[in-house]
């Protein structure tokens, strides 16, 4: 068996491009965007001192984080305390492997890609729970446990919504899911599933209105109360990477991935290179739109209470997603 086949080299290039060239810097850009959009929404100016329009602010932030003292709680578990910030970053980076950025621009076309996404997402809970426990602080522990409860609860409606997508595409491969949307995006065929998936992604990314994990009034900083320096920086990075990934997943599953709306009707045949460039830009444009929605929601909608969060997840979203799944299955069966 030859080790470096052209396919392998291509997927390594796509992977490096996606992670190093896109996902890691995107977190810094999203932090800047969040602060500017927040300032815009709240009628403030926002960071505009470092570089033109404050564009160098992320660099200054990272420098500040690196220079800070790294404190580990003496009574905490040092090993787990150090390990915990790595988990969400690693799971976020693993997700990119199955997301297609364009026609053929995907690292691995797994035939269980959709399940892989859910499995990796379910692993990211460990970072938060480990951080909460290893800090040996009640604020951290409560934050971590809240997060675990929240993520486990919202995984179920999210899984059902994704299952309805898999039904429509009649495949569990993410590439097939995107290709099935060349003409009709799944937002038109499966609007309820889309709403459920979007709400659940907000909960999975621990963003407002579901950011009880770090409710300042009750829990100080939540699971990362005892974190400082670059360890905190890793959690910060992971949070924004999860926002980016949630946006990519929403565009992939419900908004046609890299397809322009009703593209087969009007888009002329393009050369592979031009098509690739167009695909990537279309996909990124959709992603940027959803990142903006994430920020927009954060600065306009207040936080839920914990019982409301649980009630929404278990007694509203879950039954709704199961009914949605059954209806789609029956309709598909009747159509044939």
């Amino acid at each position: 068996m030859e080790l470096f086949t052209p396919e392998l080299i291509k997927s390594i290039l796509v992977m490096l491009g996606a992670t190093l060239g896109f996902l890691l810097p995107s977190a810094a850009v999203v932090v800047y965007a969040e602060r500017r959009v927040a300032a815009f929404i709240q009628n403030r100016v926002g960071p505009n001192r470092v570089g033109p329009f404050g564009l160098l602010q992320p660099f200054a932030d990272v420098l500040k984080l690196i220079m800070k003292e790294d404190v580990t709680p003496t009574q905490g578990n040092r090993m787990l305390h150090t390990l915990a910030p790595l988990v969400p970053v690693v799971t976020a980076l693993m997700t990119v492997a199955v997301i297609p950025f364009g026609d053929g621009l995907v690292v691995a076309n797994l035939n269980v890609g959709v399940l892989y996404l859910l499995a990796v997402a379910s692993l990211s809970v460990y970072g938060v729970t480990m951080a909460g426990w290893a800090s040996n602080s009640k604020y951290s522990l409560l934050g971590g446990l809240r997060s675990a409860a929240q993520m486990v609860s919202y995984e179920l409606p999210m899984g059902m919504a994704v299952a309805s997508v898999a039904l429509l595409a009649s495949s569990l491969s993410v590439v097939d899911v995107v290709n099935a949307q060349a003409m009709w995006w799944f937002i038109f065929l499966n609007p309820i599933g889309a709403v459920i998936f979007i709400v659940a992604s907000f909960a999975e990314a621990n963003r407002t209105p579901f950011d009880l994990v770090e409710a300042e009034q009750e829990l100080v900083g939540g699971f990362h109360t005892e974190y400082s320096s670059m360890k905190f920086g890793m959690f910060f990075l992971a949070e924004y990477m999860h926002v980016v990934i949630a946006s990519m997943l929403i565009s992939t599953f419900f908004f046609g991935g890299y397809h322009l709306p009703f593209a087969p009707l009007w888009l002329p045949e393009l050369s592979p290179f031009l098509k690739g460039v167009l695909d990537i830009h279309v996909f990124l444009a959709k992603t940027v739109f959803w990142i903006f929605v994430f920020i927009w929601v954060r600065w306009t909608i207040p936080r839920f209470k914990f019982d409301q969060l649980m009630r929404l997840g278990w007694s509203r979203l879950l039954p709704l997603s199961i009914v949605n799944f059954m209806v789609i299955a029956i309709v598909l069966y009747l159509i044939g």
Binding site: V112, Y116, L118, A119, S122, Y126, W133, A148, V152
Partner: peptide
């Protein structure tokens, strides 16, 4: 393989940890 991670590592063990930590 995927189900092993999704069900056992992702769901069941989280609940285990939850109980142990509480």
């Amino acid at each position: 393989a995927i189900i092993q991670i999704l069900v056992y590592a992702g769901a069941i063990m989280v609940l285990f940890l939850f109980v142990i930590m509480l």
